[in-house]
Design a protein around this nucleic acid. Structure first.
Lengths: 265, 265
DNA sequence: TTGATCCAATTGTCAGACAATTAAATGTTT
DNA sequence: AAACATTTAATTGTCTGACAATTGGATCAA
């Protein structure tokens, strides 16, 4: 029996090994919770050293494909990708993509509201009392005086999450999580005046009312109004931004310290 | 100047280091194409060994956050996440999620068509001749006799990709790529009869006609019809499937060989 | 100036060791 | 026999030091 697996392709060994194992997982040859051979056995099978195997396993761990446990019964186990993990991955990827490709606020906004619009009909018929309660609660929170911009944006995200989750389709929620959450940094750029908050809350209330009444059409109208208003707000901000902006080129080259760091020596 | 960075938090060092660097990248402290310190310098800064640093870097590489190059001017460079890479990541994550959480065909289908519906309006007004041409070409291809099920599904995906891309919003395309592509394995399970293909082509034609005429409403109607029909088809298949299915439990424990492998000794 | 050669920096890989962790096996006491 | 403490073995996590492979630039010669 061919226990040894040769790798002919080119490139780094750890990448090849990671790819081989990933393919095995995706194909279903390695079922969930299945324990991979130990690092020592793998390095034997692939005829490489243990550090190389470890680099391969770390690659897979970074993609949530496996978890590793220490100890006598430890090892690397095929991870069942949960919706939670998928959400998180989706969000980080979306956030990075947006921040790295200077997507215009208009484009991102358009995408976000277009996607949300897709949920309205389902949400209007299926939303549970929970979702509605969350929406109402967030609206209330948004009306609190003295709420920071960041908190307001967080609440905004929570409101829309509830709206999306109301559709009762986890796949839909997963797909939209990235769109909604990834917008947050961009949203945070907008300094909401009291007046604009008031209007936004008004739109939110309209949406919640429509969802409560099962009126998808009315919800759609309200969401459209919110979308238009948001984009208009952003337009103002970006105009002001353009005026203030000069060629600022930060030249930091040190890695930012993690929260728990201290200079040594 | 504190060159050394201490890591107080718990867990594996390589994970902590990866997280610190990832945070620095996401925060923008490390701009694109910026070269990270060499592995030796990093192991100095974080006060760990080089293998540990390497594991951290491999984790980041697996997430497309950095690339590494060998040689005198080599090193690890902050990678600008392209839409292409983001697509690919999005698709693999979505595919895994669906295959690992036995999402019902109905749920996935509903999500997919709901998302697509979000693009119709934009696509009807913005689509370029290219998109329309692709849609027409794929429709034609779908009508070819003797086309394999897999090719038909591929063409189906291409058709819908064109529809989505017609909206002219890369963020939207990115978000939907996962939904559409991840459905393919599920779609492949359905054996399309000549009769059902004919109907699907009919719906596709209706959609293309509507998009060409800029009639979002008509396109919406056609897409709804297609969605209903697809789900009905799937229902039949899953019913038949249920009858045939008994508890099959494969117990493979070997890692599938990569395409270029051979048993040794 | 051009071309070939050498050099230094850097990542990729290896080997072997030890630390840390964990569950199971073993032994001991009640 | 049951409950508890101890040992043990397996496994991952980390370190050290070394060498190979690669690659751009420097050096030097024609």
């Amino acid at each position: 029996m061919g226990v040894k697996t040769s790798l002919n392709s080119k490139g780094e060994l750890s990448a090849q090994i990671a790819e081989a194992i990933r393919a095995a997982i995706i194909s279903g040859a390695l079922p969930f919770e299945h324990r991979l051979p130990s690092e020592a056995e793998l390095s034997d099978q692939f005829n490489v050293s243990r550090p190389t195997v470890r680099e391969a396993l770390k690659r897979l761990a970074a993609q949530n494909l496996i978890r590793t446990l220490r100890g006598a019964t430890g090892g690397a186990f095929v991870n069942r990708l949960s919706f939670e993990e998928a959400y998180a991955q989706q969000i980080t990827t979306s956030t990075l993509l947006l921040s790295m490709n200077d997507v215009s606020f208009e484009t991102a906004c358009e995408a976000r509201y277009a996607l949300e619009r897709a949920c309205l009909k389902l949400s209007a018929t299926r939303r549970l009392p929970d979702h509605l309660a969350t929406m109402r609660a967030e609206i209330h929170r948004q009306g609190q005086p003295g709420l920071s911009d960041e908190s307001f944006c967080n609440s905004d995200v929570a409101f829309h999450r509830a709206l999306v989750d109301g559709a009762g389709n986890p796949v839909l929620s997963y797909q939209l999580a990235g769109a909604v959450e990834a917008m947050q940094p961009l949203m945070n750029m907008i300094t909401f005046t009291a007046r604009s908050r008031e209007k936004i809350i008004c739109f939110h209330t309209d949406i919640a009312d429509a969802i409560e009444g099962g009126d998808a059409k009315k919800a759609n109208t309200a969401l459209n109004a919110l979308a238009e208003y948001t984009i208009a707000l952003a337009h103002n901000v970006s105009d002001r931004h353009r005026q203030n902006q000069s060629g600022v080129d930060s030249d930091q080259s040190e890695i930012t310290r993690s929260s728990s760091t201290e200079p040594t020596e």
